[in-house]
Write a protein that binds this DNA or RNA. Structure first.
Lengths: 225, 225
DNA sequence: TCAAAAGTGTTAAGTTTACACCCATGA
DNA sequence: TCATGGGTGTAAACTTAACACTTTTGA
């Protein structure tokens, strides 16, 4: 099998997932209270080991799917963590991925099985190993990406109000945005399309529901929020 | 040794280096014309395999040092490439790093030993495997970083003229910049310090030499070019 | 009828861009 | 003396930020 590289070291490779969700005006992460060694009882990211027959992107998707049951989720690699002693049990490289999911769509039973909970991003517990570092980096990378590409819609229902959209971006940036300026910019993006549906759950008056149209976006892929 | 992870697959892990240099107003990459299999005779990035006793950052530095003899070089991880068939010989994950070096400082003999050449970035040959993709991504990541953090100075001599600095950023962005606007912005960065030295090699009149003062930068780490 | 969220334009401030000439020197 | 790169300021265009009131409706 190995033609050229027989004498080289080989490594365990894990994928760890920073899973973002959005609800009640706040970003959350899906975290695991570990039921097994090592680090039993402590909080960690969902992770899993890479297999021979899959790419690391596929591996990350498999790990995410195992926990949430979700397919076709937005995922992006953050980077690989490779300190020698990062896992005290044994040397493991870990490729960190972040993903954006709609909280309501994840499979509740699987979350229970894995002892997983949505934790608000401003109330994160201490995490094992270097998972805290992974989360910090993932937040930076996600924020940067979300400001220039329309990935935020992955965190919202297919139909959303402008108030929800603004609240999402306020959570991502950690700032308060001006409603009129925000809506002015949204109005310039013709791929954020107003539907004739009204959401009555958020207010008595009701708010128009919008959707993101990727086909239109692809024609003029300019985004800035 | 392995306490928990006995049944998991293990992988060869390489570090591949996208090595940027700057001369004559152009960015170049240090590329290898391979003398060994696989892909003998083709162009590739400098790479090497990760060892048990080193972190991936250390591994990348070792690989860069082996080729150039340089230490303390600016390096940043780009991301990990992990398609199953990316190396047709055998499955290998590769962590791509880019580095910024001063061309004159690299050890000429080592370059010859490795069959390495500086190739202008607009004249790159086809590269093996997914190295072309790595280069494209590294360019994006480097450009982005160079626009918001003062890493470009790693490509210039310690003393440089404003014309050289402008020419560097023109090469990084692939655009022409306005001389007066450029100098206005440089003047606002008090960590780009004018020395009393004059460079006479670039013009008859002579141009003031400047240096980057990291101590001052750290006090107000704001950079934008 | 009133509380609560939805919706809507204008102006000032700040930032970015465009642009042209004189200077110093060595050949 | 002249060709070459070094060095300098201002005004217009554009972008961003600040700001407050009216509408609708269910309780």
């Amino acid at each position: 099998m190995s033609k050229y590289y027989d004498d080289k070291d080989r490594f365990l490779v894990a994928m760890d997932c920073i899973i973002f969700g959005f609800s009640e005006g706040e970003l959350s992460l899906l975290l695991i209270k570990r039921k097994i060694e090592p680090a039993k009882g402590q909080w960690s990211l969902m992770g899993g080991f890479l297999r021979e027959n899959e790419s690391i992107d596929e591996g990350a998707k498999r790990v995410l799917n195992e926990l949430t049951g979700l397919e076709n989720v937005y995922m992006e690699q953050v980077r690989t963590f490779g300190e020698v002693e990062r896992d005290p049990g044994e040397r493991v490289l870990s490729v960190a991925y972040y993903s954006l999911v709609k909280i309501e769509e994840s499979d509740q039973e699987r979350l229970v099985d894995h002892n997983a909970y949505w934790i608000k991003i401003n109330e994160l517990p201490e995490l094992i190993f270097d998972h805290g570092q992974m989360v910090e980096l993932a937040k930076d990378v996600m924020r940067q990406k979300a400001s220039t590409e329309p990935i935020g819609f992955n965190l919202l229902p297919d139909l959303f109000t402008l108030t929800q959209l603004q609240s999402l971006y306020e959570a991502i940036y950690g700032t308060v945005l001006d409603k009129r300026n925000f809506r002015k910019r949204v109005a310039e993006m013709d791929y954020i399309v107003k539907t004739d549906k009204i959401d009555k759950t958020g207010s008595k008056r009701g708010a128009s529901l919008y959707k993101f149209n990727d086909r239109i976006y692809q024609k003029h892929p300019i985004f800035k929020l």
